[in-house]
Amino acid sequence: MINTTDQARALSTSHRLHASMRDRLHLFVVARIAAALLGGYAFTWGFTAFGITGLVALGGDFHEAETALMLIAFLVYLPLFLWAFVATSLFRVWAVLGGGALVMTAVAWGLQQVLLS
């Protein structure tokens, strides 16, 4: 009798444990998908903006530069997307992707101001 109650209690604890683990799993997955899709997209956006202004600053033609970066964009996005799922630290993923996006977008904007003046 005591045994079965213990077992039942143990089972219900393990169920609760499983449920909380499942929730954490879902959260993990959602966080990774967000980092991969949005973070990767933002980084690639910054990269193309930075690349175009950089090439124009070096004397390139605007449309040439744009075409070149559009050809590279998805080849940059793809490994970043995969990396977001295998990196050990989600924080590092966001630091690199989000930070990179901000820095490159800001530099692109600054370079544009210089080029226009």
Binding site: T44, A49, T53, F62, E66, M70, A73, F74, L115
Partner: peptide, 23 residues
């Protein structure tokens, strides 16, 4: 790539619009 500059990464029509116009 076909849709990249127009839709998926339209940097030339947003952030870099002034540079694009000048060009």
């Amino acid at each position: 790539v076909i849709f990249a500059s127009w839709l998926y990464f339209p940097v030339g029509d947003t952030l870099l619009r002034p540079l694009h116009k000048q060009h």
